[in-house]
């Protein structure tokens, strides 16, 4: 039973690494990298769920009767592209913050906000 779940555990470890980075790092760009790792772990989770033992890729071929689940593939495929687009939006925000405040460190940002 237990070794069959290792895939999910890898996902959780990755997810927690990302989570930890998001919490601990003060640098906004590093936070985004953490968020990206978190996101990838979710992708891997979905694809793991879609895998069927002994199944082939979901493209119809002769002599193949077991296919992996195509639905998670579709969801993640679009999620990756949407993810990079939203990540770009986040990076753009960071760049503007850097421009307005001169820093991307969270603590310094809060200090400056309080001073105003």
């Amino acid at each position: 039973m237990l070794p069959e779940l290792y895939n999910y555990w890898v996902v959780i470890i990755l997810m927690m690494i990302g989570f930890y980075i998001v919490i601990v790092q003060g640098n906004l760009i590093k936070k985004l990298i953490g968020l990206n790792i978190f996101q990838t772990s979710v992708f891997i989770f979905y694809i793991s769920v879609g895998k069927v033992a002994g199944g082939s890729a979901p493209i119809v071929a002769e002599g193949v009767s077991v296919y992996s689940n195509p639905l998670p593939h579709v969801l993640i495929l679009t999620a990756i592209v949407v993810g990079i687009a939203t990540m770009a939006l986040a990076l753009a925000l960071v760049v503007r913050i850097k421009n307005a405040y001169g820093t991307v460190e969270e603590e310094e940002l809060q200090e400056r906000d309080l001073r105003c």
């Binding site: 760009i29 694809i47 979901p58 992996s68 998670p72 990079i84 990540m87």
Partner: peptide, 23 residues
């Protein structure tokens, strides 16, 4: 390795190509 060739395609192009450049 988990049969998601379509997804792998996208991830290879995005993860290895576009994302690092943006960063």
């Amino acid at each position: 390795s988990m049969d998601a060739v379509d997804v792998a395609f996208t991830e290879a192009a995005v993860g290895a190509g576009v994302f690092p450049l943006l960063m």
